[in-house]
């Protein structure tokens, strides 16, 4: 229970800090929203020309996108401190966390929560969901709603796990920003479209290396049942919500090993 209180305290502090500059926060949120929306609008206009890509229509692709934004809205606040983790190490701000009587990750989670980015991405995600969900023929019942919530949580855990892995790499290498740019941001761009349109290699990376496919593609397949799903084992649809738990647990183990190595070999 104490652990949860510490995390909630971090959130309270983050909100408090942002609320001191209400107008700034609102404007910044709007800026994030507009920036991300501009991307989506550009993609939307391009897609109108094609009508369909691999049997996916525009609304179905917006639905695919909405999952990315909704999950990222949580990730960007929960794991905000892990985004600049290499700076934390380089500037020697990590050692002080070691001597505090709390789990290291719990000290980092929700600390400095980027609520502005969360609000921007979250609003856009919701908007895309509202626009697309009603038009893609999903039959919403108890099971599908439950699956959808599970998939969102799984998606948050998958991306959180990736952030933890990228942060753990900072214990071994000085510069890890480019690894993260390639494997997180570039792959996330790919994940905006049905992965079946890509070369096998990229599909493989999206399924097995940085499993974005389990964040939005396979969960969307459960709800939409497109024909291109025939290319992949059907079970992937059903395990999607659980992949998050596995990725997160593996990332956590890697983190523990890396931290131990960090203070035992000297920093």
């Amino acid at each position: 229970m104490g652990e949860i209180r510490v995390v909630l305290q971090s959130l309270k502090m983050s909100i408090h800090t942002r609320m001191q500059y209400r107008v700034d926060s609102l404007v910044a949120t709007l800026a994030v929203f507009i920036r991300e929306s501009a991307n989506i609008i550009a993609i939307y206009l391009a897609l109108l020309k094609f009508d369909r890509i691999n049997d996916w229509n525009v609304n179905e692709m917006l639905f695919l996108y909405s999952i990315l934004f909704l999950t990222y809205a949580f990730v960007v606040s929960l794991f905000a401190d892990l985004r600049q983790f290499s700076d934390t190490i380089r500037e020697g701000r990590f050692d002080r966390l070691l001597v505090r009587p709390r789990s290291l990750l719990l000290q980092l989670i929700l600390n400095n929560a980027d609520l502005i980015a969360s609000a921007g991405h979250g609003t856009l995600g919701l908007l895309l969901f509202v626009i697309s969900a009603g038009r893609v023929g999903i039959h919403w019942d108890f099971v599908t709603v439950l699956y959808y919530i599970g998939a969102i949580i799984g998606g948050i855990l998958i991306q959180g796990g990736m952030f933890i892995v990228f942060s753990s790499l900072c214990f071994y290498f000085v510069e890890t920003g480019s690894i993260r740019d390639i494997f997180y941001w570039n792959m996330r761009k790919f994940a905006g479209y049905p992965i079946s349109i890509y070369h096998k290699l990229i599909q493989g990376i999206l399924i097995y290396v940085v499993p974005f496919a389990f964040v939005n593609y396979f969960p969307a397949q459960y709800l939409l049942r497109k024909e291109d799903m025939a290319n992949y084992p059907a079970i992937y649809i059903y395990i999607a919500p659980f992949v998050g738990i596995i990725v997160y647990a593996a990332a956590y183990l890697f983190w523990r090993v890396s931290v131990r190595r960090y203070y035992s070999t000297g920093n």
Partner: peptide, 22 residues
């Protein structure tokens, strides 16, 4: 090496301390 949170007021840091050390 500071133990206080740079982004928080001193008071907030001390409250964090209260929570962490129960």
């Amino acid at each position: 090496r500071s133990q206080l949170w740079e982004e928080l007021t001193v008071k907030a840091s001390l409250q964090n301390c209260m929570n962490m050390y129960q």
